[in-house]
Write a protein that binds this DNA or RNA. Sequence first.
DNA 1: TTTAAATAGGACAATTTAGTCTTTTATATA
DNA 2: TATATAAAAGACTAAATTGTCCTATTTAAA
Lengths: 147, 147
Amino acid sequence: MLSNKCKYAIRAVLYLASQASATKMTHGTEIARLLKMPVAFTVKILQELAKKDLILSSKGPKGGFYINEQIKKLPIINIVNAIDGADAFHRCGIGLHKCSDDNPCPFHETFKAHREKFLSTLSSTTIGTFCIDFNENHFLYVQKEVV
Amino acid sequence: MLSNKCKYAIRAVLYLASQASATKMTHGTEIARLLKMPVAFTVKILQELAKKDLILSSKGPKGGFYINEQIKKLPIINIVNAIDGADAFHRCGIGLHKCSDDNPCPFHETFKAHREKFLSTLSSTTIGTFCIDFNENHFLYVQKEVV
DNA sequence: TTTAAATAGGACAATTTAGTCTTTTATATA
DNA sequence: TATATAAAAGACTAAATTGTCCTATTTAAA
């Protein structure tokens, strides 16, 4: 459904949200270390998110990435759209491009229902929802083991 | 959710099901051509399915791939398990390996609920369900355009 | 029995995704 | 102002996925 890159992006933004009460910045390396994600790749993703105005950044010492009130109002789906593209949630479950409501594949109904529900949750949940203390919700973000 | 390879596999098996009334064999190249899928890759997938006893094959002239009554009883999920592995339907929506019912990520409930629904459809729908005439249901299988 | 048509098997190539490294630019602070 | 720290940018590398190609084996039928 979502690419690894996109999953990393969501986790990183959720982390930034958890730090947002202090309007504190965290640099990319630190975020990657805390969330146990690949360092250089994480920084790349953060830079991409910043360029697309989904997070904010500041260069130099004490710099890093952060979010503000405006960004807290954005839904999580914006991250998905920015990283995986807007059609990530409109593909047929068995890969038929011509599959549609009018021309449904055998799994169209059930698959669409699943996809749409997940989509609607991502659309109605804002980044601000996750402005809760990181330490309290550690398990939400951190990959404790790699499979 | 499913890899391209797996989607090709499902479409190929659905096609074989549509031909099963005549217990007719179709060779790999023909299946690929009819379903507009990459030829060599399709044949590879068919061979893999045959090796895993999800379809039957016969070498030589007039040979090809086909299914029998026993195979018609198998659920579609068996194809997914054979190609993508059994855990394809048990991964967290945002990639957290430690996410579970006890330790749910923020999207756990909604994602799981509908993933399970899709899984259950694939588990309860047998290959035999698709033993209907190919020509009548052409649009189900054929990729009419490549995006 | 020869031939041609098909699967079986495995090496190989291309593409996409995932990830690193190096250099440049901006900025806080000593 | 000098220095160190961090993002920005882009080239590069690695791994996984998606495919192709070639050779061997089996088998139906002329």
